[in-house]
């Protein structure tokens, strides 16, 4: 067994996208300023907040430089008063329209795609909420501008609930950091895996909720260093094993075929199954990929040289994972 913690941390530092990221912060702030200046006088009062992986601290740098940031806009409205949820979505769209090449109302948000010259593309998703409801809950505006009425509705939502759940899962900061690192490793694995196509890849939130349910901290107390030493490799391996074990072989009576199914429910509203949109064949591919990843991780555990272990991890995560070699010398403070 070799210690790959330094390599995992180096890898994590390379892939993480957190709210320290200045570029994203600047883009967001420019748009929020724009919104403030241009929003219609008819629009209700609002407040904004960060949501999604960016806010949760589980963001991963995109491979194609297509950065994404989620911002929540809470209008001080009662959804009962706005039968059409597209109205507040339009307030936002109209205020930002023309600022970039593309500002679109999409099913769950208003997306501003930001491009300047040859700079990489960023897109910022504004999720629109009604925040002054009779039941005290928050509702998200769903539907596109020209959808049927049946596809336009207010949906019960708790965008900050999951962040709070993740953040309060562990009392120890370091434990929570390991959880977030593991989520990032999984997202990177998904990103790097070319066998996932279209909706075939598990969503970031699905991987996050799986981690919320199955992740177990892997750490050991060092009596000389007087602190816990974290083992991300073991944490990842047991997490992937837990995911694999949570798949169930199911039979589709209509087609007469078997498939591997996995279910994972959002622990906050709307509490939906985060794998519900995946087809049976996509679920099968997901199972195979999880199994293949576990096989590779098990192989890593048998390696005695760092470079051999790293090479396998590069296959899983891509070239952001460093390849290191074992050192033949360590320092000493001893003398006589």
């Amino acid at each position: 067994m070799i210690n790959l913690q330094k390599e995992f941390i180096e890898f994590h530092d390379k892939i993480k996208l957190d709210n320290e990221n200045q570029i994203l912060r600047d883009k967001r702030d420019i748009l929020l300023q724009k919104l403030k200046e241009n929003i219609s006088k008819d629009a209700a009062v609002y407040t904004t907040f960060n949501q999604g992986s960016y806010a949760m601290g589980t963001g991963v740098k995109p491979e194609e430089e297509d950065y994404d940031i989620d911002v929540g806009i809470r209008f001080d409205i009662n959804c009962e008063d706005y039968e059409d949820p597209i109205v507040p979505k339009k307030w936002v769209r109209d205020a930002l329209d023309g600022h970039t090449k593309s500002v679109k109302i999409r099913r769950s948000c208003v997306t501003v795609t930001y491009q300047k010259g040859n700079e990489p593309i960023y897109h910022i998703d504004f999720a629109i909420y009604a925040n002054n409801n009779d039941d005290g809950n928050m509702y998200i505006a769903k539907g596109k501008e020209f959808s049927d009425d049946s596809n336009k509705f207010w949906e019960l939502s708790d965008p900050l609930g999951l962040i709070e759940k993740i953040d309060s899962k562990f009392t120890e900061d370091e434990d929570r950091y390991q959880l977030k690192r593991i989520i990032r490793y999984m997202k990177k694995w998904k990103m790097h895996n070319s066998n996932f196509t279209g909706n075939g890849a598990p969503t970031g939130i699905a991987l996050t909720v799986l981690a919320y349910d199955y992740f177990v901290v892997s750490k050991e107390y060092d009596p000389y260093k007087l602190k816990y030493v974290y083992n991300d490799f073991e944490a990842l391996r047991s997490f992937v094993l837990a995911i694999k074990n949570s798949f169930k072989l199911q039979h589709n009576s209509e087609t007469g075929t078997f498939y591997y199914n996995i279910e994972s429910y959002l622990p906050v509203e709307p509490k939906n199954n985060l794998f519900e949109k995946m087809t049976e064949s996509q679920l099968n591919i997901l199972y195979q990929e999880v199994e293949s990843m576990l096989g590779k991780l098990d192989e890593v555990a048998t390696k005695t040289k760092k470079c051999d272990a790293c090479e396998i991890l590069v296959k899983i995560f891509g070239k952001d994972f460093p390849i290191t070699v074992d050192k033949s010398m360590v320092g000493t403070s001893e003398s006589a």
Binding site: I2, N3, V330
Partner: peptide, 24 residues
């Protein structure tokens, strides 16, 4: 006393009174 907690890697004297990685 010279073995890493997670692996058999050779590490500096673990009960050392000085932070590792310094040259004296």
């Amino acid at each position: 006393l010279y073995t890493d907690l997670m692996s058999d890697d050779l590490v500096p004297f673990r009960a050392s009174l000085v932070e590792e990685g310094q040259h004296f």
